[in-house]
């Protein structure tokens, strides 16, 4: 029984990533909307949109309260890196760590996804709770994650360690680095509604809907 349930949720997991976080051919547009939405969602200054050089897209996100600069560079859906730079005032920027994804190396997780992709999610079995649980695993509480210790020791910020999709990784940072817990909760509810509707009706989640839904 639990095998069927797990398989159902694995398909759902993969489908949600495909719907919201695989903007094939529209990567630049997705990232542009993403940058714009950060200013609104975090209630901070506007974040500059990324720049594109050939197939590579580069961007910088400044998280002032943490003295943190996030520099991301996306080569393809299977190759990207995000550098977490510590940027204290009057000092050289100290690199803290880089989240690097390189699909030249074997990853069990990805291969398993591709197996699950073969079958579609069964709509009649789908509930909002299923969607909430998947989004929770993807964005709110990734199973494998790291916590900040300094300059703030906040257990609510979880940087997912096992995310290999660049767009999903960036979107989960948007959620995790938002300081307002109430706003996060409202955002999760909004996303559950959005994806449930897409999965049961039109099957589409646009970048605009994903980023700029009413809060």
């Amino acid at each position: 029984m639990s095998t069927h349930r797990d398989l159902h949720r694995t398909r759902l997991w993969e489908t949600i990533i495909r719907l919201g976080f695989t903007p094939v051919g529209r990567e630049a547009d997705w990232l542009h909307q993403y940058s714009r939405s950060l200013g609104t969602f975090w209630e901070c200054d506007q974040v500059k949109p990324p720049s594109k050089k050939g197939v590579r897209v580069k961007g910088v996100i400044d998280c002032v309260p943490l003295n943190l600069l996030l520099e991301y560079e996306i080569g393809s859906a299977e190759r990207f890196s995000i550098r977490f730079l510590c940027a204290p005032p009057l000092q050289e920027k100290d690199r803290m760590w880089t989240h690097d994804v390189d699909h030249q190396h074997f990853s069990l997780r990805t291969r398993w996804f591709n197996l699950a992709k073969a079958k579609k999610v069964k709509k009649n079995r789908l509930t909002e709770d299923d969607v909430r649980e998947i989004l929770s695993g993807l964005l709110v509480h990734p199973a494998v994650h790291q916590h900040l210790v300094s300059p703030i020791d906040n257990h609510n910020i979880r940087i997912g360690g096992g995310i290999d999709n660049p767009f999903l990784f960036l979107f989960h940072l948007r959620y995790q680095l938002c300081p307002d817990i109430d706003k996060r909760n409202r955002e999760l509810t909004r996303l559950v509604t959005l994806f449930y509707r897409a999965l049961t009706k039109n099957g589409i989640v646009t970048a605009n809907e994903l980023m700029n839904g009413t809060d």
Binding site: L66, I152, N154, N156, P179
Partner: peptide, 9 residues
């Protein structure tokens, strides 16, 4: 207003 970031300042 600072939410989770209040500790940093």
């Amino acid at each position: 207003r600072m939410g989770a970031y209040k500790q940093s300042i």
